[in-house]
C-alpha cells in the first residue's frame, strides 16, 4: 500500500477562511476535504495516512513554517506527498510549491501539486516538483483530482511520466527525448496552419522566460518629484463605488485624494477578497501609505503626492488583465507628469 501525506491549507481543512489564515501547522490522521476524493480515486492502491494543514498567511509570513510542516510529514514516513491543489490562490500555491519542493529535496521522495497556470507558484516551483494544470477555482476540483490521481500513482511507483502535454502537468524544464508520430517538418506545417488560423497550438519548446523590463532610471531630485500610489491591495472609497471584484478583478479604480491627509477606516476600505481585511479596514494606510507621504510632502522631502491613486484587486486576477490595467495606468501617469510610483501589494 502506497502511503500518502496530504498538505492543504486551513480553508480546505475546514478550519475557516481568511480570518483563520494565521493558523500554525497541524496534523490529523487520515484525510479531510479534498483528500476524500483523492483517497476514493486511489481505489485501494494508495492511502492518505495523514493530512497536514497550515494557514496560508502563517506559512508565507513565518520562515520556520515549512520546517514544522516537514517535521509533521516526515513522522508519517510517506511514499509520496500531495499538496493542494491550490488552483489560482497565490499564497496557497506558494505554500504547496514550497512543501512539495522541500519533500523532494529533504525526504527524497516524489511530490505532486496542482495549480492554475497563472498562479505565481507555477513559475516558482515547476522545475522542483510536478504541478498538474488545474482550473482557476475549486470548481475544478473533480478534474484536478482526476488528473492528479494517476500521476500520483505513477510517481509513487517510480514509473516514467508521459509528456507534460499528454499528462496535463507543467513542463519541469527537464527535457526528455521521445519519438513523435509525425516527422518534425510535418509537425511544423501543422503548427503553422494552426497559428495562421488563430487556433491554439502547443510549442515543443517554450522559450525560457526572459520577460523582464529594464529598470527605469532613478529619480534625480526627490524634492521636486511627483510620486503616485498604486496598489493591488484593493483599497477603495467606502462602499466600493466602482464595484471592483474581490477576486479576478475586471477593472481598476482611480480615486482623488486631493486634500486628504490620511486614509481612514471611516472613508476607505479594501475590496480585496484574498486576505484578512480587518487591519486594512481599520487603517487603510497600512496598505496605501497616504498619511506618511502627505507628511513628507509637507516637509518638502518629496515634491508632491499625485492627486489620484490607482487601485485594483490582485486576487486571482489574470496576468493579462493586470497587464492591461497597468498599461492604461502607465499612460495616464505619464500624461500627468508623474516621476515615480510606489506600488503596494498584499
Amino acid at each position: 500500500m502506497i502511503r500518502i501525506v496530504h498538505y492543504i491549507n486551513q480553508f480546505y481543512a475546514g478550519k475557516g477562511g481568511e480570518e483563520m489564515a494565521n493558523l500554525p501547522p497541524e496534523k490529523i490522521e487520515g484525510f479531510v476535504g479534498p483528500g476524500m476524493a483523492f483517497n476514493a480515486g486511489f481505489k485501494g492502491e494508495a492511502e492518505i495516512v495523514a493530512t497536514v494543514y497550515c494557514g496560508d498567511s502563517y506559512f508565507n509570513e513565518n520562515e520556520g513554517a515549512v520546517d514544522v510542516v516537514m517535521g509533521l510529514i516526515k513522522e508519517e514516513n510517506p511514499d509520496i506527498v500531495i499538496c493542494g491543489p491550490a488552483f489560482n490562490a497565490g499564497r496557497y500555491g506558494v505554500a504547496c510549491g514550497t512543501v512539495a519542493a522541500a519533500v523532494r529535496e529533504q525526504l527524497e521522495i516524489p511530490s505532486i501539486t496542482g495549480m492554475y497556470e497563472e498562479n505565481p507558484g507555477v513559475d516558482m516551483f515547476k522545475s522542483k516538483t510536478i504541478i498538474v494544470k488545474t482550473r482557476n477555482s475549486a470548481a475544478g476540483m473533480r478534474d484536478a483530482v482526476k488528473s492528479m490521481v494517476p500521476l500520483t500513482l505513477k510517481l509513487a511507483k517510480g514509473e516514467e511520466l508521459g509528456t507534460p502535454a499528454a499528462e496535463g502537468y507543467f513542463s519541469t524544464g527537464i527535457r526528455k527525448g521521445l519519438f513523435e508520430e509525425k516527422r518534425g517538418s510535418q509537425r511544423a506545417v501543422d503548427m503553422l496552419l494552426k497559428k495562421l488560423a488563430g487556433e491554439p497550438f502547443e510549442t515543443e519548446y517554450p522559450m525560457p522566460q526572459f520577460d523582464r523590463v529594464d529598470p527605469s532610471p532613478a529619480i534625480a531630485d526627490l524634492a521636486s518629484a511627483t510620486i503616485a500610489l498604486v496598489t493591488s491591495g484593493g483599497i477603495v472609497p467606502k462602499g466600493n463605488p466602482d464595484h471592483i471584484e474581490s477576486s479576478s478583478a475586471s477593472r481598476y479604480g482611480k480615486y482623488d485624494i486631493e486634500g486628504v491627509d490620511a486614509l481612514s477606516g471611516a472613508t476607505e476600505e479594501t475590496a480585496h477578497g484574498g486576505y484578512d481585511p480587518v487591519a486594512a479596514n481599520l487603517d487603510p494606510n497600512r496598505v496605501l501609505p497616504v498619511d506618511v507621504l502627505r507628511d513628507m510632502e509637507k516637509e518638502g522631502i518629496i515634491g508632491k503626492l499625485h492627486r489620484y491613486y490607482y487601485t485594483t484587486v490582485g486576487n486571482g486576477t489574470a496576468v493579462a488583465s493586470a497587464k492591461k490595467y497597468a498599461e492604461a495606468i502607465g499612460k495616464e501617469l505619464i500624461a500627468d507628469g508623474v516621476q515615480a510610483v510606489i506600488l503596494t501589494s498584499t
Partner: peptide, 27 residues
C-alpha cells in the same frame, strides 16, 4: 503590473511581503 508601468520609463518600487513572487513577476 509593476513591469507594465515601468515600461513607460517611470521607476516603480514594489512594496510587498512575498518577495519571491515579486522576483518571479519581474519587479
Amino acid at each position: 503590473m509593476v513591469k507594465e508601468i515601468e515600461k513607460t520609463g517611470i521607476p516603480v518600487v514594489h512594496m510587498c511581503t512575498v518577495v519571491p513572487i515579486s522576483l518571479t513577476v519581474g519587479a
